[in-house]
Design a protein around this nucleic acid. Structure first.
Length: 123
RNA sequence: AGAGUUGGCGAGGUGGUUGCAGAUUUGUCCUAGAGGCAGAUUUGAGGAAAGUCCGGACUCCCGAAAGACCAUACUUGCUGGAUAAUUCCCAGUGCGAGCGAUCGCGAGGAUAGUGCCACAGAAAAAUACCGCCUUUUCAAUGAGCAAUAAACAGCAACAACUGAUAAUUGAUUAGGUAAGGGUGCAAAGGUGCGGUAAGAGCGCACCAGCAGUAUCGAGAGGUGCUGGCUCGGUAAACCCCAGUAGGGAGCAAGGUCGAAGGGAUUAGGGUUGGUCUUUUUCCCAUCCCGACCAAGGAGAACCGCAUGAGGUGUUUGGUAACAAGCAUCCUAGAUAGAUAACUACCCUCGGAUUAUAAAUCACGAUAAUCUGAGAACAGAAUCCGGCUUACGUUUCAACUCUCUUG
RNA sequence: GGGUCAUUAGCUCAACUGGAUAGAGCAACGCCCUUCUAAGGCGUAGGUUUCAGGUUCGAGUCCUGAAUGGCCUG
């Protein structure tokens, strides 16, 4: 369950900026870094929020496992895309304990994290 | 029925909803682009995609192409075949393991040369410690009449002659020997008989090895005969022989995205680890002709990038690997890296209950209902051929051994 | 993705050309010294040489395969 390209974080520099300047929120299996987009240049519309997922080989040696976790997280993000405010750059880091998690766990934890960071509308 | 060997198929299927990527296509927007947005159709991981252990294709660099010799590299190393190529594959030979089906093998040369074989042992490749035998000299021993023979005995007596050119032991000189001893992973072909001073392939028989020869085979080799007897192991030590190879880097190769080059000449220069030969005219060189300011922008952009030593079926040739012909199919192309979540039906397997035939019971069979599971190893990254490793369940074929029944 | 190197005691490293019982420093433990500690001295234990095969009389060393870890590369 991939994300549209406009919602992906693709630049190395973007990642570095988010790690360095963003806010952080933690949960047992995930870490969330988020940086509000610096707008005010000229413009009309704030760009859509973009996401990146980082998962290290320490979580699992197997590419199959890592890729599945990424897909599941992307799936969760996709299902919340309507509610998420625009103008954020967000990186989600998966922590080693997450191997045992299933789809519903990611769903709940990510909701919680987004609420804490006040990125989701209507909460 | 049990135990086993070898090889193969397969890696659940068909859909739906929400989404991602590619291709084709429709509409629409403007900044008019291989653009954005929305929709439709369709396609979307593996047998190992993995490890990166080999072999190639492809690309660039060392100007290019071809060749000779040398060097270098290669664990390439029984024979023949097959392939684009290989260390893979096929068929065979030899050796080894197994009752067998079958499996394994780095399987050239130690008689080209050099090295190494610790400790032990006399000696680790051609030596001699103990030992055995012959011999020189000396000494001792005791038997003996007598061993430095001026003696003694035999004969009636004396001389002559004869008896003693002997034996054993120790040391010593000169040799012979490799049977035996002990050491060791390994000791100079093995066992037996003869033979000899003692011994020894010194001779003979059998066995093993080597050489020669005959014969069979395409060959590795097989079989037979003859011969003299003989030569340790190690080449995954250097090496020798044979064979193969231009070297190096790797798709993160390499190329494109405005901007200059073209033509002629051959007298000269430039060549991959070295030397050299031939061809070319690639670059330099020389000469001639020609061009001149103009917008966008260099991004993990685009090409390379998927029609290929391709797949499937079939026919022919071949024991086979494989080759050739014909027909047919097009089947991933991402780049912070595309496959997930939920669900319907079918199928397969497991469990439970009930029923049926049968029945003393049990096991088992069939059907229905309910319920559970569909998993293991694992994710394309330029592409192919192999190898190796990982891998749950089910299943098919051929063959072997043992037991039981007939 | 591609290339390349390494693995020996808890840690850092030795062990030559294959030869025996694999060493050294630090750390650990015990004793001495000191009022006590540190330093110092003496001693002790600790090894499947990453794993599995092979060659060899003999392997940490040579060969093959596997595992793990590092480094380089736009």
């Amino acid at each position: 369950m991939g994300l549209p390209k406009s919602h992906r974080l693709r630049d190395r520099g973007d990642y570095r900026a988010v790690y360095a300047q963003g806010i952080r929120r933690y949960s047992p299996h995930l870490t969330l870094f988020a940086l509000a987009y610096r707008e005010t240049k000229s413009t009309d519309s704030t760009p859509a929020s973009s996401f990146g997922i980082s998962i290290s080989k320490k979580v699992s040696k197997k590419a199959v496992v890592r890729n599945r976790i990424k897909r599941q997280i992307k799936g969760v993000i996709r299902s919340h895309l309507q509610e998420i405010k625009a103008g954020w750059q967000i990186v989600i880091v998966v922590r080693p304990k997450a191997i045992e998690c299933k789809y519903e766990h990611f769903l709940r934890e990510l909701e919680e994290l987004l609420k804490q960071a006040k990125i989701i509308n209507g909460y």
